[in-house]
Nucleic acid binder design. Structure first.
Lengths: 155, 155
DNA sequence: TGACAATAGTCGTTTAAACGATTACATTAT
DNA sequence: ATAATGTAATCGTTTAAACGACTATTGTCA
């Protein structure tokens, strides 16, 4: 009986190693994700909003088009427009139309947005460390290698 | 420049190995998750609904209380009631009140539900394999070990 | 040039996720 | 016995996710 089996109180063995890896990935990621979500809730941000703000900070001072933001996100979002609407309403981002290609809207992070991110940098970093530091550098590096290898065939 | 950095077109290095692992987990899991979601969409099931159906199949012939279902889920769901409502409406599950403790509702998977799951077993298993088989047994086992170790401090 | 296709972003609508409050029943302690 | 506490599940409401249709602008090519 594997550890994951007992965690989810499953009596039957997994169909395959591949399936066990997939389920283990979901469970591990969800556990970490929830804790980060809790942190973000303290400032009323969703993980996707936080992700976009960090992308925008990284693209300063030029800003990015919607589609470019979508490409950079960790998880796919089907409606960037309204996500940006909410950030703009809260004055965390600013939008403006591109001069040359008037189809494009350029979004930049605002001073407020930068401030909010700055406030989250330390606790976010500490949280990841608190959850994963016990693995040690060697195993962390190995995990990164394996995850990259796992993504190879996912399109 | 790491692989994940170029995938998300990030110019700055990660703050720490722990943070890189966390982001890599999200990206890897999301990629696999999406493909499974697409499969489930063909029969109009959400991943959470599918998860519950499999839990219920595993608990046959006794069925489970709501809280027990919640405990076994891969991801936390804040409203099992309505998730089960939908399964019941579609005749994939059946609910009945516990005789001894009348607070408890026991849910069981229906014949329809079992049939639907049976129909998904093969393609689901094939999908995981298609995404991960290239790692080989040794690396799959190593990945499982590392993921279990990663979950140790996540509560 | 002018029709047609491609691209960028937005919007309408349906559905479900999330949160808190609430009901119903069981258990415990006094 | 009964009040208080705990537990199981449900429900009301707000908000956002998801999907497809739609508008606006640019690019292509006969």
């Amino acid at each position: 009986m594997t550890r994951l089996q007992s965690e989810i109180k499953q009596s039957k063995p997994f169909r395959s190693l591949e399936e066990e890896v997939y389920l283990s990935l979901i469970r591990t990621t969800d556990a970490l994700f929830r804790r980060h979500e809790d942190l973000l809730k303290t400032v009323d941000l969703s993980p996707a909003q936080y992700n976009v703000l960090r992308i925008l900070r990284g693209s300063e001072p030029h800003g990015l088009a919607c589609k470019e933001i979508a490409d950079r996100m960790l998880t796919r979002d089907p409606d960037i427009t309204r996500l940006l609407d909410r950030l703009e309403q809260r004055k965390l981002a600013v939008r403006s139309r591109h001069r040359e290609d008037r189809r494009v809207i350029i979004t930049r992070i605002s001073a407020n947005g930068l401030e909010l991110l700055a406030q989250l940098d330390r606790p976010g970093s500490e949280l990841s460390k608190a959850c994963l530091r016990h693995l040690g550098k060697a195993r962390l590096r190995e995990l990164i290698r394996l995850l990259e290898a796992a993504r190879e065939k996912t399109g």
